[in-house]
Design a protein around this nucleic acid. Structure first.
Lengths: 267, 267
DNA sequence: ATTTGACCCTGACGCCGCGTCAGGCTCCAC
DNA sequence: GTGGAGCCTGACGCGGCGTCAGGGTCAAAT
């Protein structure tokens, strides 16, 4: 029929398991004055009366709503305040946090998309921006070859934050650069000349829009472009022999800046 | 054309305003090793190189995704790890947090509804559960009269967590109680008798389903019910004179338990 | 009466990402 | 050399407890 201890009150452990919280939680609520046991034993043990346990349950209800403990204390101690006011505030705060989390999810999605697809534009948009000579399959191919490098990660970061408008501006400057390269080659500019080195640096800087391209990386890129029939076809359509000439001015530029192009490695 | 300091690096303040963060943030990121400036002046000032600032920007990108700083550090330092793995994890975590927040919003809505309407059932549901003699307008009237009391707040807490099924069980036990009351009155049970007191306590306990009803509160309730034509009509339809008899057994029960019913107040 | 073992006490640090002092040093311009 | 802006390190605070550490209490079993 219930022992004497129960009629006087429950110890923390009993009250805690009764309410489905931990002992530490009740200690904490006692410390901050949210729920203090109405009695103590001679030895200092907390004793929770039925009313105390009921208060714990009331606290739990508001805690499930995400209210801060301070507000809960005010709510429970206020004699007859309109509880819908803090509840409406809480509702607004929750909705605010949800919308911010949702925008985070959207951003994460864009980032995953950038890392996967390599570009955040549909095939149609790609053709519209980069011109008809652009093959959207190149984006996939690039991911297959470079997708595991830190540079690709860096590229994905930047791509995730770019709009089609940004892409258009980049495409414009790239097209200008390609025209300048073709004009220089036609004009007979020699690799290693000041003009050629300036163009090589402009080319490296344009790659910098995607990731931080060092001189050795630049050399590797120039050579792998030259070895790739697809790239050759693209560049040579602008100006015959442009791919090899570009590789040569990149090599010469690197050499002039103290890098041996023949021992350049990607990393 | 840029001062010497700029070529060597930026001070914290400059780097901070450059990246749109506070100085304290850069201090913190330095302390935890996330972004440490690559140099210091003779006097100990932090000097952020262009590469350092770039790293700050990369950190910002991932911070906007809600990633913890530790994870960001790993991402940036990992040589060629697949970044979609932590991103997918992050996405899952975000969705999880959103759904929990959403359930909080739902709970808050239920609570507001309970505090406003007084009951979380439509008028049709109320009639279906409490029977045709129940007038849904009573719920509104009750809120108008009691809506500002702490007992109403407590009632709203409990109502917010109740399902129609819960209401049905309560309605059943109330109906049983009313029948027992009517039977006892017909049988000539006298107020103050053990049987009458037991019934009064059962009645008080049934109110306890809504809020903690003390003996003085019980007395006040019995008297205000007796004074209300609507309540009288409801109870007297069960058994003529039941309202007054109920008030009397409540008064007697309170007196037998040491409460003077004539000086009982609500609070 | 004592021992055991389960339970209780207080106090303090840790988490996460900084904001916000406090007390003192450095830098650059005048 | 001097003033003021900017920098340094160190420390506390927030929110809601989890998780030891070191020691006392309680009731049952011996």
């Amino acid at each position: 029929m219930g022992d004497a201890a129960e009629s006087d009150g429950l110890t923390v452990g009993a009250a805690a398991s009764h309410a489905g919280v931990t002992v530490r939680t009740l200690h904490h609520w006692d410390a901050i004055g949210l729920v203090r046991p109405s009695g103590r034993t001679a030895g200092g043990y907390r004793l929770y009366s039925a009313a105390d346990v009921a208060r714990v349950h009331r606290v739990l209800i508001y805690r499930e709503l995400g209210l801060p403990l301070d507000d809960i204390g005010e709510l429970l101690d206020a004699p007859a305040v309109d509880m819908t006011v803090p509840l409406r505030q809480q509702r607004a705060q929750l909705l605010d946090r949800i919308s911010r989390l949702q925008s985070m999810v959207d951003a994460v999605d864009r980032m995953i998309e950038a890392a996967n697809a390599g570009i955040l534009l549909s095939a149609e948009e790609q053709v519209a921006i980069f011109g008809q000579r652009w093959d959207p399959a190149w984006a996939e191919g690039a991911r297959d070859r470079w997708g595991e490098t830190p540079q690709w990660a860096q590229y994905a970061e930047r791509a995730a934050g770019m709009t089609p408008e940004d892409w258009r501006r980049i495409a414009d400057s790239v097209a200008t650069l390609e025209n300048d390269l073709a004009a220089a080659k036609r004009a007979g500019v020699r690799p290693g000349s000041a003009e050629a080195n300036a163009l090589a640096e402009r080319h490296r800087a344009s790659i910098g829009a995607y990731f931080d391209c060092t001189l050795p990386m630049h050399v590797c890129l120039g050579r792998s472009h030259a070895a790739d029939p697809g790239f050759r076809a693209y560049y040579d359509a602008i100006e015959p022999g442009l791919t090899f000439w570009l590789r040569d001015i990149i090599d010469a530029n690197a050499r002039d800046r103290g890098i041996d192009p023949d021992s350049a490695t990607w990393t």
